[in-house]
Write a protein that binds this DNA or RNA. Structure first.
Lengths: 385, 385
DNA sequence: ATCGGTATCGTAAACGTTTACGGTTTCGAT
DNA sequence: ATCGAAACCGTAAACGTTTACGATACCGAT
């Protein structure tokens, strides 16, 4: 019967049991007033643990080189206070040991992760993936990584994503709002914090943070002017959610030009949709019943414009003779559809790049200056107009 | 003349200057054998520092609650060894203080980040962004984040991206190779490590890691069989890089069916391209000069198939009467082009989802079993065939 | 020898968590 | 009172870095 010995006084006489804690028997030595648990099979030597597939650390290099971790850090970071000889020696050693710094530890100390968070409504829509492409490449140029979250056009998800990202994992946040986003408290909460936020493409204009977006108003003006020059007077417009800048500003441009030409705005010619196929078709059907007949349609999205073209062709309505069609975005499909789609090229990719660049420069400089950047676009005239 | 006093013995008599280090005057007290630097304006009380916009930490809550950080951690993590009362108290306190855990610190300890790395050739090609969408959503369903890197179809960038990600920031890596990737040493290096890697869509078949890809061989078989049933015998094929599985397996399926029907493979009917517009046009021009004339074209990519259709239409060649055209992928453009494109739906999105799911389950289970998953697709017959 | 100065290195704390383990208190049954 | 047990809480180390500050050795000019 192996009696339990106290690890301190090494005696076995006055040992009492003292409960079970976390499934292990616990003892109490009256001599040294010491509680203890029966020795569990401890890792005897850390060497065994090191020999597995773990990443090697600064300490491993330090041990191998016979110096302190500080010295190793200094050598690898090309800091001062180190001799050329040891620096070279340690660098070669680290190289041969295949050392890779642990970014988590670095980030914990430096409070920076060199990572951007991006919240985007969807990845399956061309304009969004193109913007993301711009964001990603520009970020990569600055040495930044990108974490993406999709909101699926759902405000709840957008809010959840923000919370999930704001946990010190990112240095800055880029957000393109959901089509249904109308309140912005979830953004305001984070506005004073260390992590800068910028909005792109779909922005809340009133929100005092940096925003990067297409020059929607001018774009709509140019499109509308073009159509009027072609003789159109009954111009219908397919818009998105009223709370979004793309809707507001593009409508504004449309309005400006109509006013300029003394044409009255007809509310029946405006449709606010979520860009789903059903809603687009429904809007179109309504328009076609209106008299005097419409002679042009401006769609806020190329994709919907393409769908409109297909519908019109089914109905044997001639484009552009009876109805001229204009899109926004200059996506690839516009080139493929027949007749080819006229559109306003918002230079989506550039918006992504600029958003990325502006945010990163805010991060680097630490400035929290609010800038509002408009990316100029240009008309692309094809057959549909 | 304010003499310098030793911070230890508080005397000013036997103080010597002792060099300048890092731009600050240094002193040496002969009495206590102590080196020191003139007192810099130190932060007197940490309270001042805390009052800025920093995130609050477990320690802040602990201080506010008058308990240890351990207790706070236990309360928030619903661990044992804590009373219901204090748990509730601390939870409410943390809530009111708007506490957000620091994921960096958590990850450093737990050695997991709940983050996936994804390396993808491009974001501006529909199939890739669609796959990424599948990856992202499935990951999000499991509570994982996604870091994306684009290789821009450049092997160097692919290698650099892998290195950049393998620094403890991710729990697993998903990779879709560049079209030019032919050596795989950069993958092999990381294969034994803690972080599992899986390939998707474009895979190196021989590489002993998990792979998720379309059932390319069967797809090509079905497409070829369909064309032969329609009477085609001179079927041209537009392929990608020879080292890629999509090229190899789709060619294999084509080959299988031709053999089955006793049709000899004609090398002139095969073109290996990088899917750029120029190369596609060049391949097409070559084909059109061949006799006996070709009567069908299978393109490995929908996008190229669409370009082929446009070229053929320019040349007044009837589709499908003179030449039938087939694509791979079932992208949106195939629906828009006229005539509408027949294609093999590889269910791109599902590939992304499955890749995400398999990798995450490997991460969770810790298993490193190699699985090779084929995603079945289906024929989509439209006007072009 | 003394002293100011420089070059090079180490110590220890810090970043914010988690966790193994020890201590204290309480309680019920002898 | 004594003893076994349980409940609850704190201490300190650990994760892998960076960095403020001290220590030591050495050197050249008095």
């Amino acid at each position: 019967m192996s009696r339990v010995k106290c690890p301190k006084c090494n005696k076995a006489e006055r040992i009492l049991k003292s409960g079970i804690v976390r499934n292990k028997q616990r003892f109490y030595c009256k001599d040294c007033n010491y509680h203890f648990i029966e020795a569990s099979p401890k890792r005897k030597n850390n060497i065994v643990l090191k020999s597995n597939n773990d990443q090697i650390s600064l300490q491993d290099i330090a041990a191998a080189a016979g110096v302190s971790t500080t010295t190793v850090s200094r050598a690898l970071k090309d800091r001062t206070d180190i001799s050329e000889k040891t620096k070279k020696f340690i660098k070669e050693l680290a190289n041969s040991m295949n050392y890779q710094p642990n970014m988590l530890a670095q980030s914990l100390v430096s409070r920076t992760t060199h990572t951007l968070g991006v919240i985007i409504p969807s990845l399956e829509t061309t304009i969004f993936s193109t913007m993301l492409s711009g964001i990603q490449e520009e970020a990569s140029r600055y040495g930044y990584r990108v974490i993406i979250c999709t909101s699926n056009e759902n405000q709840e998800t957008e809010i959840a994503n923000i919370l999930g990202l704001m946990n010190n994992m990112i240095d800055g946040l880029l957000i393109c709002h959901t089509i249904q986003t109308s309140t912005f408290e979830h953004i305001r909460i984070h506005m004073g914090k260390r992590i800068p936020i910028a909005q792109f493409y779909r922005v809340a204009i009133d929100l005092p943070i940096t925003q990067i977006l297409a020059d929607d108003e001018v774009g709509a003006e140019e499109v509308t002017e073009y159509l009027i020059q072609k003789g159109c007077t009954r111009i219908a417009m397919l818009l998105g959610s009223k709370s979004l800048s793309i809707t507001q500003k593009r409508f504004k441009g449309y309005q400006n030009i109509l006013k300029k030409h003394g044409i009255k705005i007809d509310g029946k010619l405006l449709a606010y949709v979520d860009f789903s196929l059903e809603q687009v078709e429904k809007a179109l059907d309504k328009w076609l019943k209106i008299t005097p007949k419409i002679d042009a349609i401006i769609s806020i999205s190329d994709r919907s414009a393409v769908q409109i073209i297909r519908q019109l062709k089914k109905k044997k309505i001639k484009i552009p003779n009876q109805i001229r069609v204009f899109g926004f975005g200059n996506e690839f499909v516009g080139e493929i559809v027949e007749p080819q789609l006229s559109t306003f090229d918002t230079r989506i990719r550039v918006i992504g790049e600029e958003a990325s660049r502006l945010l990163i420069e805010q991060i680097i400089s630490g400035s929290r200056e609010i800038t509002s950047k408009l990316i100029p676009g240009k008309l692309v005239i094809r057959d549909s107009a």
